[in-house]
């Protein structure tokens, strides 16, 4: 029985490791500036995880193989209550490895979250609602028009409550898909109208809740032109699973051209661009 268990534990371990190293399923190719550092930290961590997992399972299998009761009478187990030296040794080693990992794991976070978006960032205001994304662009004047929840009227398609009496609102555009420039820092101002939603683009290696009653500012830089799926990753109700949109990462010229278009043409152009760019293949 001990040997069967050992072999089964080892097979499970081997198959689990194979599934991870098979390369058949992994992160989609990253498209953000912070992603390489993040992916490196992930690789270091999963290496530690994989080695610890494998070592522990091999060790467990070895113990049950080697120390199974062979039924020899009078044969007793080793009488020991432990070893302080060993306790200290493995406590210190694991503490060092785990806490080092933890501290290393802060660098990408700190670079993204402890600073405001750099000057010259491209700002988009994002307003999520059940089960739809609204992206509000500042337009030619680079100034967002005033918004007010009192003015929201979904039936009149004023999804973000834009105040048309505000002069800086005149050139703003609101669309259901996100367009951002490539290789330029992007600042998103995230808000939600009803419940919590979450902005999630796997290729960006980036996720952030949108919380009603708060405006949360986040920033990142995308570095590959293309069209990417954008999902909601916080349970927001019935149709959460299809609260879907797209993020277009566009060459600077295309963004500049888009930015100055008034609402209707902006939307038409977005439809055109969404058709122009294919989804990534991995």
């Amino acid at each position: 029985m001990g040997r069967v268990l050992a072999v089964i534990i080892w097979i499970i371990t081997l198959l689990s490791v194979l599934l991870f190293v098979s390369g058949k399923w992994w992160f989609p190719t990253a498209i953000s500036d912070h992603a390489p550092a993040l992916d490196r930290q992930f690789m270091i961590t999963i290496l530690v995880v994989g080695i610890s997992f494998t070592a522990a399972q091999i060790g467990l299998g070895w113990m049950v193989w080697k120390y199974r009761d062979t039924g020899k009478s009078g044969d007793r187990a080793v009488y020991t209550h432990g070893s302080n030296r060993l306790e200290v040794l493995w406590t210190v080693i694991t503490a060092f490895v785990f806490i080092a990992l933890g501290v290393m794991g802060q660098s990408v976070w700190a670079s993204l979250r402890l600073h405001d978006a750099p000057a010259g960032s491209y700002s988009v205001s994002v307003v999520a609602q059940q089960f739809q994304w609204n992206f509000h662009y500042a337009g030619r004047d680079n100034k967002f028009g005033r918004t007010d929840p009192q003015l929201i009227d979904d039936s009149a398609l004023n999804f973000v409550g834009l105040d048309s009496s505000d002069p800086s609102a005149a050139d703003d555009a609101v669309t259901a898909a996100l367009a951002i420039p490539v290789n330029r820092p992007v600042e998103l101002r995230l808000r939600a109208k009803d419940v919590i939603h979450n902005f999630w683009v796997p290729q960006l290696r980036f996720k952030q809740d949108l919380v009603p009653g708060m405006e949360i500012k986040v920033h990142f830089t995308a570095n590959k032109v293309g069209k990417y799926e954008l999902a909601c990753a916080e349970l927001c109700g019935q149709l959460h699973f299809k609260m879907k949109s797209y993020m277009l990462v566009l060459p600077e010229e295309e963004i500049q051209a888009l930015q100055v278009l008034p609402q209707e043409q902006f939307q038409a152009k977005m439809v055109e661009l969404l058709a122009k760019y294919p989804l990534p293949t991995n």
Binding site: F27, L38, Q41, F42, T45, I46, V48, V49, S52, F53, A56, F98, L101, G102, G105, Q106, S107, V108, W109, L112, R113, N198, W200, P202, R205, F206, K207, A233, E234
Partner: peptide
């Protein structure tokens, strides 16, 4: 338990959270 090492890191939680 060992994958807690991944999920416990704020940076890695950016892609991992709620998946």
């Amino acid at each position: 338990g060992i994958t807690g090492l991944i999920l416990g890191q704020s940076s890695l939680d950016l892609p991992m959270h709620d998946t």
